Simulated scan of single mutants.
Amino acid sequence: MTEFRRSSTLPHLEARRSCRENVCYRPHAHDSFSIGAIDAGTSVVTGPLEGGVRLAPGDVIVIPADQVHACNPDRGLWRYQMIHMDQAWAESLAPGRGSSRLFETIRVLRSPELYTQVNAVNDAICADEPRERLEARFTELFASLGAAAPAHAISGEADPELLARLAPVMHRLRTDESNPRLGELAAAVGMTTYQLVRAMRRATGLPPLAWRQNARVLRAREMLRQGQPIAESAYALGFTDQSHFHRVFSAHVATSPGSYRASCKNVQDRSA
């Protein structure tokens, strides 16, 4: 079961509550800043490094934009909530130097007060509170998150020079409707296929084709939020058919394109 809510006055602000039992997420990255909280059950979060961190009820996790991760149930029922938002907006509200660390690495925080605060902010988004009230809540939340010492930090710093070299490859992976051949992509940046796969993993946390799928899902979420039909979105993004689009989308978002689009339409109806 998954439920999405979005603010009618801050369209980039999205709240999510989910209840899962099975492994549901491939390694992926968001183009947004994300704050999560574990309500019940245990799960394991993995990041760019090998190994994982077990999350327990009451834990809060902060995930900067473009940080590859996957969080899946450890055993039994797992209930959690997430808040996604534009990272530049979040940085503009975060007070003081300490808060800047929030936007650098994945951080796991263990504090009952923080959990309560995240839960209250999520409730406020679901209640569609006014913009001014939401911004005040987030300013307070960022101050609390920035002052808290993390129980774990998962680093995922990228090499800017390597990212610049890979920019042509990433552009083609993002925009080509058909899957580009790895050998062709590698030759364009003076690498072997093996070197390209290693370089993409080091720079982004994902191999080339997995990065392409992630980029397409991010674009799909944007298109569905804008109300575009599922079939048109799948075709525009180069998926072979709707069932393929459904499988890829669900593996990244843990809900179907139809369910996600319907939740976005509910927000549009409320703001009309």
Rank of each mutant, 00 (worst) to 15 (best):
P160A: 10
L93D: 08
N214I: 02
P57I: 01
L141N: 02
G51T: 08
E129D: 13
T204Y: 12
N179I: 14
G51C: 09
A251S: 15
N119E: 10
F4Q: 00
R212L: 09
G76M: 05
P207F: 05
R198W: 11
R201S: 09
H30A: 06
G190F: 07
S263L: 01
F33G: 00
L10M: 08
P95N: 06
M223W: 06
R212N: 11
L49R: 13
Y115P: 00
S34G: 02
R17P: 00
P168W: 10
A70V: 08
L77H: 10
T9D: 10
D59K: 01
R247A: 12
C126A: 15
V217I: 14
G41R: 00
M170S: 12
L185M: 11
R17W: 07
I106C: 03
A234K: 00
A272G: 14
R5S: 12
P208Y: 09
H69C: 03
T116L: 14
S92P: 07
L109N: 01
S32V: 06
L209F: 15
R79V: 03
D241F: 01
G98S: 15
H12L: 04
D86R: 09
A231N: 09
L173F: 10
A203Y: 03
N122H: 12
A148G: 05
R54K: 12
Q81T: 07
T2A: 11
S144P: 04
V45T: 15
D86N: 15
D269E: 14
S259I: 07
T193F: 07
I61W: 07
P207C: 13
A187K: 13
E91V: 09
T139G: 05
R133W: 07
D31T: 08
P95F: 06
A29Y: 05
V68T: 13
P160F: 10
V169D: 02
R261P: 02
P64L: 07
Q213V: 01
L196K: 01
R212G: 07
A136S: 13
R247W: 08
C71A: 15
E14T: 10
E222D: 14
Q226M: 08
V121L: 10
V62H: 00
V118G: 01
